[in-house]
Design a binder for these strands. Structure first.
Lengths: 165, 165
DNA sequence: TATTGTTATACTCTATAACTATA
DNA sequence: TATAGTTATAGAGTATAACAATA
């Protein structure tokens, strides 16, 4: 355990020793991700979209007509769990399920006008959020993380793929 | 949209354009964290501990006698949500709540012998998991991430602290 | 037979409000 | 009055099994 002091020189709370968690990639990623999502939540409070909902709107806007399961797969969400997610966005009038002509089992997803309008505001909020982080981190640290994190993702994706064969 | 090919030269599924998510720190962190936790889950399947439970045992082992809320705070978990977590570990016989003498409102947390024994196995599994990641990433990328992620965490911690004052 | 979307279900995680017993 | 632990509760996120309609 370590005693630290705050800016005023008062003794701060005792900081417990985290042992192997300190150098654990998973632990570090979880803690940092939660912090970043807190900031995201603040930026998106007025808009009323959670990170996952935002990501769904983004993917549909940039790839209109994708099938439900394609969007789900692109975002790493199971088909099963994607249904209520799409339900919520559809009942808010932000997207439409259109019956596909080629394959009548599937729906093609499209944004409504309202969905596009909200997405415009959301994209601005997202950019402001990213710029806030960028100002905090500096370009060097930010760019390094944005280069390193996908590398880790890709390496693990191949590993997992190989393991599931 | 981009068409990619797999190793056999067969056309893989169409890869949707993720737009601003590609360079979103929050999105990147979330995806990578989930991948790393998948690997963690594989490593811990036989042991039967989830990441959070593991982290609780680690902190108690290295700081025996901490109060419940101190452990919760160290791990970024709310007191409220920490109760059932400690309940589950206590009912499995891995830790004990001991009534504090100085402050009879609080419990001091200690591992049982069985808790220590399981933690020994868990620490080995965790090390193997980290070493697997290290072998995949190489020392340079791994060390850079383990240096950069706490930096980001610390910068956001100060920001959030300032915002809540 | 396999796939798309769906329902039902269960467990974990997270968040808020309010209680109790101590301080 | 404030704090430590608790209860109750509700909303998300994630996971599996099984079904109908369609391919």
């Amino acid at each position: 355990m370590t005693n630290v002091q705050n800016a005023k020189g008062e003794p701060d709370a005792v900081v417990p020793d985290l042992g192997p968690l300190e150098s654990s990639l998973g632990y570090r990623l979880r803690r940092v991700q939660l912090r970043v999502f807190e900031d995201f939540a603040r930026a998106f409070a007025e808009i009323g979209l959670r990170p996952t909902q935002f990501s769904v709107l983004v993917v549909i806007a940039r790839n209109p007509g994708l099938r439900q399961s394609e969007v789900a797969h692109a975002l790493g969400i199971q088909r099963t769990n994607f249904v209520p997610l799409v339900d919520s966005l559809e009942s808010r009038g932000l997207l439409e399920r259109r019956l596909s002509q080629q394959d009548r089992r599937s729906y093609a997803l499209h944004l409504t006008e309202e969905g596009s309008a909200i997405l415009t505001r959301a994209l601005a909020a997202h950019q402001a959020h990213e710029e806030r982080l960028a100002a905090l981190l500096g370009p060097e640290l930010r760019n390094r993380l944005l280069a390193d994190l996908p590398k880790l993702d890709e390496l693990l994706r191949r590993e997992a793929g190989a393991a599931n064969r």
